[in-house]
């Protein structure tokens, strides 16, 4: 039986790990190779790296970072952040990413997903979605550019389209919950689960194993977290022990 995955996320800026709240107040949080190595040792099932560099130089550095992490990492690595063209995605895959996350570019031009999937295979293409809750009962809309841009696109409808466009997985971040450490948006996960059989990685709001259990029961296949792992508060292994104790299948 397929195991539920626990995935630490590293935000990368100019070759360094950074952390912040709601994409703001970034501070240096270490060396990506060291952190990736530690996470694998501590039971991470996969790693997500998001390039938050705002400059072209930063993008070049990200390729070097992917190469360096690949040399030491023997678990899957998904890389996203600022991927705008199939060529950029393919460069990341060649540098050592196993999957590439596409976000804003797909909103502006959905055919990038189809083109990418036909060139590299659907299983390498992850659609990354930042969803913000609308007034009660009105669902969620997709936001982009670190939440500053409201697209007016309905998040559930966007996921429903994704499967037919050749996407292999959804990385679903709740913009409202991100950085709050009060739990994932389980209502969002439930609604999204209804419209797709694609694997879903839940993101935004994790503070503890119970939050992860709630997200997995709401329909997520994997749970992503950043801050709780960065500061050594807990490890993927410790989280997975609690998941297993509650009857969720995990990789021992």
């Amino acid at each position: 039986m397929l195991c539920s995955r626990v995935i630490p996320c590293l935000d990368i800026d100019n070759g360094r790990v950074v952390k912040g709240v709601k994409f703001a107040n970034m501070r240096d949080a270490g060396d990506p190779v060291e952190q990736a190595t530690r996470y694998e040792r501590e039971g991470a099932d996969e790693l997500v790296m998001l390039d938050v560099s705002a400059t072209i130089g930063g993008r070049e550095t990200a390729l070097d970072t992917v190469r360096a992490v690949r040399r030491v990492l023997s678990i899957p690595m998904c890389v996203g952040g600022g991927v705008r063209t199939p060529e950029h995605a393919i460069a990341l895959l060649r540098a050592g990413a196993d999957k590439v996350g596409v976000n804003s570019a797909a909103l502006e031009n959905p055919s990038i997903l189809t083109e990418l999937a036909s060139r590299v295979g659907a299983q390498c293409v992850v659609l990354s979605i930042d969803a913000a809750r609308l007034a009660e009962g009105n669902g969620w809309q997709v936001v982009s550019r670190a939440g500053t841009h409201q697209t007016g696109v309905d998040a559930i409808a966007w996921v429903a389209r994704a499967e037919s466009m050749g996407v292999g997985e959804i990385l679903l971040t709740s913009f409202d919950q991100d950085g709050t450490r009060t739990g994932y948006d389980t209502q969002l996960l439930r609604e999204v689960r209804r419209v797709t059989t694609l694997p879903i990685i839940a993101s935004g709001g994790a503070d503890n194993a119970q939050h992860m259990i709630d997200a997995l029961r709401a329909g997520a296949d994997a749970v992503l977290a950043a801050s709780i792992f960065h500061d050594n508060e807990t490890t993927p292994d410790a989280i997975k022990e609690e998941l297993a104790a509650s009857g969720i299948e995990v990789r021992a």
């Binding site: 292999g168 059989t197 694997p199 994997a222």
Partner: peptide, 11 residues
């Protein structure tokens, strides 16, 4: 068609 596809993860 009833099972999660693609199979992404550890088994």
């Amino acid at each position: 068609a009833t099972i999660r596809t693609p199979q992404h993860g550890w088994n």
